[in-house]
Design a protein around this nucleic acid. Structure first.
Lengths: 351, 351
DNA sequence: GCTGGCACTCTGTCCGCTTGAGTGCTAGCG
DNA sequence: CGCTAGCACTCAAGCGGACAGAGTGCCAGC
C-alpha cells in the first residue's frame, strides 16, 4: 500500500477514521463497527471494520469509553482529522450575510461585540473576540476632557481607528483652555508615535522643563505621563455562554459548573490568546494541546484579525472538543477577514 | 385572641409561618410537622402543628408540592414574611468593608460594574446594576473629538458626574478647531440643560441660521442635533450568572437553561427596573408579583441609587424565590446607599 | 484478506419492592 | 375547648434483579 508523506495510514483506514469522526461529531455517541458498516460507505462487514478500528485505536486516534462501547476520537484523532481529512464546508449565503451585517457599525467596540455575538449565534458555540491593550499602537490624536476637578478623561485615537478612553486622576487643576492646548500640543508633537515612545519622549522633556521652569510645560508633561500610564485594559468579549447548556457533554451539573467558571477566568484565556497572536493563519487548539484547553476539554478555533502589517487581536470560538470543525473553520476565517477588511477601510478613510 | 391590624393571624400561627419559611429558605426542602416539632421552638406535638399548618395552607401562605410532602411557602407566604415577620440581619463588618471597597474608583462605569460584581459575590445571587439613559439629565459639558473623517466622538459630562461617550457619523467635515469651538459654544450656551431641552433649543436655532446663512452655525446645529439624538444606551450589568448553578431549584438542565436565557433577555429586565425607578425605598418583588418574575419564579430585591433629588438607577439582586431576604435586604440597602453617597461626593467635588 | 459466528462484557432501563416521611382524620384526655 | 396519640393512607425515592441492546475480540473457514 502506498503511504502518504503526511501520515502512515492506508487510505481505507483514513476513510474509516474520517467517517467515525464525522459521525461522532454529529451524534456525540461512540461509534461501533455495526453502525459504521450499515452507513453504506464501506463495502465491509462489521468484523473487518473492527480490525481497522483496532488498528486506529493502537495508533492513538481512537479510544473506547469502556470495554463494550464504540469508539470515540482522541485529541490526536481530531488533530489528524483537521490536518489531513477534513473538508471545510463552504458558508451559506445566509451565514455570509449575517457576518457582514455583524461587522457593520462605526464604533470599534460595538463592532467587536457584535462580531462575537454573531459568531456565537452562527456557531452555536461560545464566541470570543479579543483586543489586547496595544501599547505599541500608533497614536493619531490625544485629547483631554474635564470631567471634574482633578478628574480628566483621556481620549486616544489610534491610526488604526481604535479609540480608547479612560478617566484619570490628576494632581493639577486644568482649565478647558489648558486641556485644549495640551491636547493640540501632544497630538501635533507626538502623532504617529506609540504610547511607549510618547512616554519616553515625555520623560526626556522633563529635563527641559526643569531648565525652563515652564509651568505650562510641567502640567503638560504631568498630564501626558498620567495619560500614557493609565491602565488601558484589553477587551475580551466572551459571548453566548448559554450555548454550552445544549451540549450533551455538559449535561451533568458538575461539569457544567466547571465549564462556566472556566469561561469566567478571563486571565487564562487572555494569556492563551496573546500567545496565539503571533501566528498568522487559522489556529485550532484541541484539548491537551494547551493547558487551558486541556483541563476543560475545550477546543478553540481562532484567527488573527486586523491589517496584516499590524494585527489587532484574535477572534474565534471555544467549545467542547466535539465540534463541527469543518463548519467552524470557515466561519472564523470569514469573520476574521471581514473584520480585518472593516478595519483597513476605517484606516483608509482617515484624514 | 388579639389580632393585629396588619394581619388576621394569631401569634402562634405567625411564629409557625416564620419558622417554616426560615427553615425552608435554609434547607430548600419542604418542611413537615415532625421536623418543625423537633426543632424545639414550639411546645407542641406534630399533630397540633399540622392543624396550624393546614390553616396556613388554607390562607394561601403555604402549599404542598404533593400530597405527602411537607409545606413550602407560596408567593403570598413570602410576601407576608417580608412585610411582617422578617428580622433583617445586620451586615458583618466584612460585608460593609467589601461593599465600600467595591464602590471605590473614579469612573462611574467601573464603579457600577464593580458594584454589581460585589453584590453578586456577597449575596451569591445574580447582581444587577441598572443605569437608564438619562435623557433628562443636566449637561455640564459637551465635547467633540474627531475619530476619522465624518466620525466624531461625542463626550457628554453630566452635572451628576456621569460621562457618556458615543461615536457618531456626521454629514459635514470638521477640523479640530471647529470641534473645539462647537464644544465651547454648546457647553457655554446650554450647560445645565437636559439633552431634551438642548435638542429643542437647537431646533429653534435652525430658523435663526436660515436667516443668517451662517455656515459655522449650521455645522454647529447639525453636529449638536446628531449628538443629542445619538442612541445612548442604558447600561445594565448582570453579574454572577454562574451563581445560579449552585441553587438546587435549578439543578435540572431544562430549568437551568430557561433561567439563563431569561437573564439574557435584558429588555424585559430593563422594562421592569424602569418601572421600579419610581419608588423610593427598598423594593422586593416576589414571583407572581410581576410578569418577568412570575414566568421565571424569580424574586428581585432592589433599591434606587443616586441623589434623592435625582435618582440615577437601580441596584439589586435577582434570584430564586427561595432566598435569604433577611440578608439580601440590608445588603442591597447598604450598597445602594454607598453608591448614592459616592455619587453625591462626585457632584460636590465638581467645579 | 475478508467474513460469519460465537462467547463475553458492559450499560441503561424497566419493574417491583421496601422504606420513610408526611398527611388527614378521629377518638380520647385534661 | 384545645392538645395529643394513634391509625390508615399516599407518595417519592432508593435498591436490586432481570433483561435487552450494542459492542468487542477472537477464531475458523472461505
Amino acid at each position: 500500500m502506498a503511504t502518504r508523506l503526511d501520515s502512515d495510514l492506508d487510505p481505507r483506514a483514513r476513510d474509516v477514521l474520517r467517517e467515525i469522526i464525522i459521525q461522532y461529531i454529529d451524534s456525540g455517541e461512540p461509534i461501533g463497527s455495526r453502525t459504521l458498516s450499515k452507513c453504506g460507505r464501506f463495502p465491509l462487514s462489521p468484523a473487518s471494520l473492527r480490525n481497522v478500528m483496532a488498528d486506529l485505536e493502537e495508533l492513538g486516534f481512537l479510544a473506547q469509553p469502556h470495554t463494550s462501547a464504540g469508539r470515540v476520537p482522541t485529541d490526536r484523532g481530531y488533530r489528524f482529522f483537521i490536518d489531513h481529512l477534513m473538508r471545510s464546508r463552504s458558508l451559506t449565503s445566509r451565514e455570509r450575510e449575517e457576518i457582514d451585517e455583524g461587522v457593520a457599525g462605526s464604533e470599534i467596540d460595538d463592532v467587536l461585540h457584535h462580531a462575537s455575538a454573531t459568531l456565537s449565534k452562527l456557531s452555536d458555540q461560545v464566541g470570543l473576540v479579543f483586543m489586547p491593550t496595544l501599547l505599541q499602537f500608533a497614536v493619531r490624536s490625544m485629547d483631554f476632557i474635564s470631567v471634574a476637578d482633578h478628574r480628566i478623561m483621556v481620549v486616544i485615537v489610534g491610526t488604526n481607528g481604535v479609540v480608547v478612553n479612560k478617566v484619570i486622576e490628576t494632581r493639577f487643576l486644568f482649565t478647558r483652555d489648558d486641556l485644549e492646548k495640551i491636547g493640540r500640543y501632544i497630538t501635533s508633537e507626538f502623532a504617529s508615535l506609540t504610547l511607549d515612545a510618547i512616554r519616553r519622549r515625555l520623560i526626556r522633556l522633563t529635563e527641559q522643563e526643569r531648565a525652563q521652569h515652564d509651568a505650562m510645560l510641567q502640567k503638560t508633561i504631568a498630564l501626558g505621563i498620567d495619560a500614557v500610564n493609565a491602565p488601558y485594559e484589553h477587551d475580551l468579549y466572551v459571548e453566548g455562554a448559554s450555548s454550552i447548556l445544549n451540549k450533551p457533554e455538559y449535561s451533568d451539573p458538575a461539569s457544567l459548573r466547571k465549564t462556566f467558571l472556566a469561561l469566567q477566568e478571563k486571565e487564562k484565556l487572555v494569556e492563551l490568546l496573546e500567545t496565539c497572536l503571533a501566528e498568522e493563519g487559522l489556529q485550532i487548539l484541541i484539548g491537551s494541546e494547551s493547558d487551558f484547553t486541556q483541563i476543560n476539554n475545550f477546543s478553540i478555533v481562532a484567527r488573527r484579525y486586523g491589517s496584516t502589517s499590524a494585527p489587532l487581536g484574535m477572534v474565534g470560538i471555544i467549545g467542547p472538543m466535539r465540534m463541527e470543525y469543518a463548519r467552524m473553520a470557515p466561519l472564523v476565517e470569514y469573520l476574521s477577514r471581514a473584520l480585518s477588511r472593516k478595519i483597513e477601510e476605517q484606516e483608509h478613510t482617515d484624514g
